[in-house]
Amino acid sequence: MSLQQSLAAVRQRIEQAAKMAGREPRSVTLLAVSKTFPASDVAQAAAFGQNDFGENYVQEALDKIAALRPAWPALQWHFIGPLQSNKTRDVALHFDWVHSIERLKIAQRLSDQRPPELPPLQVCIQVNVDGEASKSGVSPDEAGALAAAVAALPRLRLRGLMCIPAPRADVAAQREPFARLRTLRDAIAAEHRLTLDTLSMGMSADLEAAVQEGATIVRVGTALFGRRAAAGAVQP
């Protein structure tokens, strides 16, 4: 299947899931996870109308951004992986979104290093919804306090929550952690009087369940670009 066909197939999956949930398909953003794939694949996807791209590795992403920004200045770049302190400046300078905030220190550095001439950096709190030791993210019990602190930072705009739940066998089981994240988002918004409009959740294998539970961004890599050579990680 060509990349154009894969994009069309994923967009159709999103549309069908949204309609089943009584939602407008345009309320769901497809984030193409392009980590480990070359800039030429991103350019090809952009030519087919894809606008948002997710990256996990800072230097790899910076190389792609530098190569593509002259021809594709309107592309939105999302950092979706664990972020170390020594990489925050590059992310603050070159990305539009960060989905993986789990520590206040990282958020503070991003805010301090975001240039004033750029729009605020759009960010999400990553929540470890299943309490997995192998996964990044703040615990659900700690998410509210972190969200309130991040929302107060001047060069960031807190948009919502992100999660990567453990794999589950069927759509009904997949929906459960996504429903918990939605409920948590709504509770945090009410308690701290925040406007949180984003749920970054759902990947290639479970995007239907995520959309049915209110996802506004689905992070899809494998269903678009194919499987990666690296093993051992959950494939978006």
Rank of each mutant, 00 (worst) to 15 (best):
S2P: 11
Q4V: 13
L7S: 05
R11W: 00
R13C: 10
I14E: 01
K19F: 06
K19C: 09
M20Y: 02
A21K: 01
E24Y: 05
S27D: 15
T29P: 03
L30N: 11
L31G: 07
L31S: 10
A32V: 06
A32W: 03
A32S: 10
T36N: 07
T36C: 04
F37P: 03
F37S: 04
F37C: 04
F37K: 13
F37T: 07
P38L: 04
S40E: 15
S40F: 06
V42P: 06
V42E: 04
A43G: 12
A43I: 11
Q44C: 14
Q44K: 14
A46N: 13
A46D: 08
A47C: 13
D52V: 15
F53C: 07
E55N: 09
E55G: 09
Y57D: 00
Q59Y: 02
L62K: 07
D63R: 12
K64C: 03
I65W: 05
A66Y: 09
L68R: 13
R69M: 00
W72S: 04
Q76R: 13
F79D: 10
Q84V: 09
T88V: 05
R89S: 02
R89N: 02
R89F: 00
V91T: 12
V91H: 07
A92E: 07
H94C: 03
W97D: 01
I101W: 06
E102L: 01
L104I: 11
A107M: 02
Q108C: 00
Q108G: 04
R109W: 01
R109L: 14
P115F: 05
P115T: 05
P115C: 03
P116H: 07
P120G: 12
L121T: 11
V123F: 05
V123G: 10
C124P: 00
C124L: 08
V127Y: 01
D130S: 06
G131Q: 06
E132I: 08
K135N: 12
V138K: 06
V150A: 10
A151M: 08
A151G: 09
A152P: 03
L153D: 10
R155T: 05
L156R: 05
C163Y: 03
P165G: 09
A166G: 08
A169F: 02
D170L: 03
A173R: 03
Q174V: 02
Q174L: 00
R175S: 02
F178W: 07
F178P: 06
R182L: 00
L184H: 14
D186E: 14
A189P: 08
L194W: 11
T195A: 13
D197V: 14
G202A: 06
M203G: 06
A205T: 10
D206S: 06
E208T: 15
V211E: 07
Q212H: 08
A215D: 06
A215F: 09
I217M: 09
V218K: 01
V218T: 08
R219N: 07
V220L: 00
V220Y: 05
T222L: 00
A223E: 04
F225H: 08
A229D: 13
A231L: 14
V234N: 01
Q235T: 13
P236Q: 12
P236T: 15
P236E: 13
